[in-house]
Design a protein around this nucleic acid. Structure first.
Lengths: 198, 198
DNA sequence: CATAAAATCATGTAAAAAGGGGATACGGGG
DNA sequence: CCCCGTATCCCCTTTTTACATGATTTTATG
């Protein structure tokens, strides 16, 4: 499933020559995907990670809870380390880039069908080597503060909102700068948005 | 042309049933696209706006300069008003979203072949209505300053870099905040990254 | 060439963020 | 039980941003 018709059509086209694969259908949003699964369950779902409304990450969790036997392979445009991790945490069995070749896609499907995990990260790494890709591990509170900063709030405003002292907010903020290894808010927010943490 | 194989395959699949259309080939980067055009020119190129390395916007300009008779239709995932505008400025004849249906795509191609302009913005607007979508028009200097801010530089550093006074940088910065209608750097950078201006 | 837009520079104040120290409390895991 | 990570709090200083107000020069465009 994917929210872009061209991508769905592309995958269908890539798989139509494979006799071992039967195309069950497609969905362009979470609701229709769940409605479909209510009637029948395929062996594998190729699921775009980023979609409008409910993300593939949430949907992955929901599908695996209701239908544990369905394997899910995440699809994404970039090598989004954070999202891949979340996707796997939520029960996905694999991950394929959208610029994968037919061979890679088939390899991923076959690997996952055997019950193993497939990650097309090697290909991704060569593409994505520009940004260091190191994603800091944030605590619950740090994420909250980060989101409020990105929302344009100042430290005093954040302190009021979270019912904590301004100095505490300041400390969290300092820790965020340290974890991201940046020296000001501009870089912090840029990285956070690019890593899709916000 | 597109940097994602699945998208290329999707478009090819959508068009293969159309007898009026002959699939000339595909390219996954600017260099191979130009190399191809060196030998033969198709009537129309479907060109992804955002690609690694040379963007579709730059490539569009280059192609139209060398081969003015080739029509170009921009392809993009989101309704990126700014990019669409630049693409049209650089000589593109149309614009289609990647989640277009076969009918929309064909309509776009046929319209452009007749020498007219096709913009699938109506569909885009309904999708993109969540974010206000108002993208400010920035001057050359403002863009420079914005990018340096996003690069983590302070006003004195930017001033040195651009050989201008700190107060001038400050003025540009104020104008940026005003144009984006935000009150601090965090929001400014968030919006700029999300609008893919950075 | 005239007008508007853009780019430049300035002065001053107030607020916010960054950088450097410390310190206390609490909870879970070894 | 003690350690470690997390969260909380405080002080101080310097730098950077934000806001207000005004002005001159350059550049683009009709």
């Amino acid at each position: 499933m994917d929210d872009h018709y061209m991508v769905i059509e592309g995958i269908r086209s890539l798989l139509q020559n494979e006799k071992s694969i039967e195309w069950a259908g497609h969905a362009m949003n979470a609701a229709s995907c769940l409605a479909y699964l209510n009637n029948q369950q395929p062996d594998i779902i190729l699921m775009d990670i980023s979609m409008p409304g409910q993300s593939g990450i949430d949907l992955c969790k929901e599908v695996k809870e209701k239908y544990p036997s369905v394997f899910i392979i995440g699809l994404s445009t970039f090598n989004q380390q954070s999202f891949i991790q979340k996707m796997m945490d939520n029960g996905a069995s694999g991950y394929v880039l959208k610029n994968a070749t037919q061979e890679e896609l088939m390899e991923g499907i076959e690997t996952v069908m055997k019950g193993r995990t497939y990650l097309s990260i090697e290909a991704a790494q060569s593409l994505q080597k520009n940004s260091n890709g190191e994603m800091p591990v944030l605590t619950r509170r740090e994420k909250e503060v980060l989101e409020l900063i990105a929302g344009g709030m100042t430290n005093p405003e954040i302190a009021t909102k979270l019912f904590i002292s301004v100095t505490t907010v300041d400390t969290h903020r300092k820790n965020l700068l340290a974890k991201f290894d940046v020296k000001n808010t501009a870089l912090l927010i840029k990285l956070a948005v690019q890593m899709e943490l916000i």
